[in-house]
Nucleic acid binder design. Sequence first.
DNA 1: ACCTGAACACCGTTCAAGT
DNA 2: ACCTGAACACCGTTCAAGT
Lengths: 208, 208
Amino acid sequence: MTSPKTRSRLTRDRIIGAAVILADSGGVEELSMRKLGAELGVEAMSLYNHVEKKDDILDGMIDHVFRAIPLPAADSDWRVAIRETALAALDQFVEHPWMVNLLMQRGIYGPSSLRFMDRVLGLFRAAGFSEEDSHHAWQMLASHTMGYAFQQMSGGEDKDEWESNIPDLSVFPNVAALAPYLAKCEFGAEFAFGLEIIIAGLAARLDR
Amino acid sequence: MTSPKTRSRLTRDRIIGAAVILADSGGVEELSMRKLGAELGVEAMSLYNHVEKKDDILDGMIDHVFRAIPLPAADSDWRVAIRETALAALDQFVEHPWMVNLLMQRGIYGPSSLRFMDRVLGLFRAAGFSEEDSHHAWQMLASHTMGYAFQQMSGGEDKDEWESNIPDLSVFPNVAALAPYLAKCEFGAEFAFGLEIIIAGLAARLDR
DNA sequence: ACCTGAACACCGTTCAAGT
DNA sequence: ACCTGAACACCGTTCAAGT
């Protein structure tokens, strides 16, 4: 709890770390260069000495999250390694609710992000998947994890808020009937349901 | 090609239609109230007579895209109906590259969007899926379609641009080896690969 | 009822000026 | 080498004023 004035020197890493914390508490839309500077006890314009532009910070935030995902163990069965890795990735995506959306608009280019991707692709290739199928597998898992994290986050804080946003739910009987499920109840189980289908489908493909 | 001055009266629908066209050609980040007004031959502030705020327009754009997706045929086998619908949805998402990202930050609340969702959920329930599994199925398909559309769009125009964005590709041998696949080559085939796995997995679940 | 101009409180970013 | 203040060209949105 040192005062901003006595804090150590500015760094790209320190800026990105502060940006992650700021976005975690207020959302990305609350993250501006001026507010970020204030958080670091500095004027907004000082940030440009350590960072090219704001997009640079955003890319750094994405890489920061990827670095926190444990890499898959290379020695265990690919199915358990993939399962563990997907669950770990989901954890991080939920912990940083801005991540999925940011990743979607910025893409995956940072060193830790590419390292993560490279390890997962390597896992598939080592298991015997062709190059093309390895890419398919990566894409399916990425879509499932990001898509689930998105559904997990969307619709506000709880189910009531979700329902109150919809004008006339009576016109949509199926949506109405499934509303309890659409509200984010059973946490990991829903994600696992699809994960097992994907892993089983990939395994069947491998055995041919 | 009537001059802006002689154009018919402003409408919420006309505003949203113009916003879709503007975003299609320049991206959402290029869509501002002032530019949108100019496109309609009107000052930005006039828009507020027909629209609550900019978010209102964004939600309308999402609903506009959903309305263009053909609803699943209720009388055919659920597997072919789902397959057709997923492919049709992907078509629209690719035609409007801003859609997936916008949908992720705004959620699904518009009438056409909910109607679409309701029909798909109804299809699963009619096929015999439990409420919970119907929700699982919806979520898997939504994730796969949005995730694939995202991968399709990300990374710029072509493969060269993707590779040139990465500092040192030699450190990531698997990413390097799969670069040709990461660049958006085989269009529909890649999407279909995962789609069949998902449909087969769901069918197996249903037969238990 | 609808459109307008000016204004407010913000943005990201540039740049000359300070130390 | 790093930080600053003022400025530029933008935002979304409000509001009194026009017709």
